[in-house]
Design a protein around this nucleic acid. Structure first.
Length: 451
RNA sequence: CGGGGCGUAGCUCAGCCUGGUAGAGCACCUGCUUUGGGAGCAGGGGGCCGGAGGUUCGAAUCCUCUCGCCCCGACCA
């Protein structure tokens, strides 16, 4: 049988038979993992730690990473952002221009090549993107521009922890806007914010936008997007209405400035703040039933920073009247690898992960409870072929209990359980991981429910 | 970077105090029995006891140094 591409994945995977797969699940919890998502990622065979804060992504984990990245790409495209790819290793000279080479501190990983030139492993890319923009963009008529990449970054954290959520190497979408003036920059900012809300909603997590500290620039043009997780870096407070808003059904247009302003106003009309910006008086004004508080992990952040980099790096273009103007910039991040951990923190139980369908490595697991039984094998292969790579077939010569436990652990949204009893009756059992519901259904009905 | 802890089989750990040449459970391999929520019996493979140096007739065990990992704090896309 020829490999079939996963319908949603940019990568082509081979068919996934568990008996032939590299998905090393662990019955026991590795000693180094303390929190749920870290434990479950190791146990479900998604990642293996290579060094402190650095992980190898195994086949199932890579699928999740890809699914998240695909959702990000689709929503970035919808908002008009263009994807590109920047190098991880960069010359220190660019960073000396902005002054950040010295300002950044020991979190920046510095490297020296054979010619004794200073390099660094980029933790973010304002310098590089500004350099590319200034080489190319000469007129206000070439603005606005919205560019992004999804690339590995490195921050040499003093103390990496919580697995992939606070690692040193991380996979992140970083985007940058260039605009001719403040008004246009604000529209770019709001456009990204709307795109973020749609992106997170499609992933099956509710990331709450919170006003972040904007430093000397001020205004309401920096937000952090936070998912509740016990291991979060800050205490957060918000109005639960922010969990209910449906941005996918809303018809805010990316092109219409009034729509964008209305959207921004809607978000800011509900209370949401981290510990540092918490305001007791405003909190008291939130209806008691709507108050939500807890630890929160940041999965995205956006900010407008005006001409901070364009000015320092001498990025100028010709304006409408022929005079020189300095483009206004913003930057926009989504922690793709961090989201894998954050989603698990938000969606798991005693038995394992509960994947939201949009990011699950496999839509379903097909459990063959009696490998070698002609009927079971035939039904399983039939179902499996129809999934075209989107399902995982557990064809291992294992006991039923072990298959159930692994399927629960790996968190597939659906389990299609094929046993001799059902096969004789022409049915399979369909289990929903999230609700735990199991029902006897025909093969056709199982397929139509899951596919 | 301050404080604490841990490195022994793929995983979880015992052994270390009181030195005598390496263990358990799970996993893995073979056979038989079993077969719908991590089976049973029998047999088997697998460890430079993180690394280096020292003390000793003898070191997983004692001493020194070193590397790695984890936890608390400060920090944190």
């Amino acid at each position: 049988m020829r490999p079939t591409p996963h319908p949603r994945l940019p990568r082509t995977f081979p068919l996934m038979r568990l008996s032939r797969s590299f998905i090393p699940t662990l019955k026991e919890t590795p000693a180094e993992a303390q929190i749920a998502s870290h434990r479950l990622m190791l146990r479900a065979g998604l990642v293996r730690q290579v060094a402190s804060g650095i992980y190898a992504w195994l086949p199932a984990g890579l699928r999740v990473l890809d699914n998240i990245a695909t959702l990000v790409r689709e929503e970035q495209a919808a908002a008009g952002a263009q994807e590109m790819l920047m190098p991880t290793l960069q010359s220190a000279d660019l960073w000396r221009e902005s002054g950040r080479y010295d300002a950044y501190g020991p979190e920046m990983l510095r490297i020296r090549d054979r010619h004794e030139r200073d390099l660094l492993y980029a933790p973010t890319n304002e310098e590089l993107i500004t350099d590319l923009a200034r080489q190319t963009i000469k007129s206000y008529r070439e603005l606005p521009q919205m560019l992004y990449q999804i690339q590995w970054k490195f921050r040499d954290e003093v103390r990496p922890r919580f697995g992939v959520m606070r690692g040193r190497e991380f996979f992140m979408k970083d985007g940058y806007s260039f605009d001719r003036d403040y008004e246009s920059a604000v529209a770019s900012y709001r456009r990204m914010m709307l795109s973020y809300m749609r992106t997170f909603q499609r992933m099956g997590v509710r990331a709450i936008p919170m006003l972040a500290d904007t430093g000397p620039i001020g205004g309401e043009l920096s937000h952090e997007f936070i998912v509740l997780a016990p291991t979060g870096e800050s205490q957060v407070f918000y109005d639960s209405t922010l969990e209910e808003l449906d941005y996918l059904k809303s018809d805010f247009s990316y092109e219409n400035h009034e729509d964008l302003a209305a959207f921004h106003g809607l978000i800011n009309s509900y209370y949401a703040a981290t510990e540092e910006k918490h305001d007791e008086a405003r909190w008291e004004a939130v209806p008691a039933a709507n108050r939500r508080s807890g630890r929160g992990i940041e999965v995205g952040q956006i900010f407008y920073f005006g001409t901070k980099y364009s000015d320092k790096m001498n990025f100028r273009v010709a304006g409408h009247d022929g005079k020189t103007i300095t483009p206004e910039m913003g930057s926009y991040g989504i922690g793709v690898s961090r989201l894998v951990g954050a989603i698990i923190e938000a969606s798991h139980d005693e038995a394992g992960i509960i994947w939201p369908a949009a990011v699950a490595p496999f839509r379903a697991a097909i459990l063959n409870l009696r490998v070698g039984d002609a009927g079971c094998d035939r039904v399983c292969e039939d179902i499996y072929a129809k999934f075209g790579g989107a399902a995982l077939l557990d064809d291992r010569d294992e006991r039923a209990g072990g298959k159930f436990a692994d399927a629960d652990l790996m968190g597939h949204p659906w389990q299609i359980i094929v046993g001799p009893r059902g096969v004789a009756a022409g049915t399979v059992e369909l289990k929903n991981r999230a609700t735990g519901t199991r029902e006897e259904v025909s093969v056709e009905s199982a397929l139509s429910r899951v596919l």
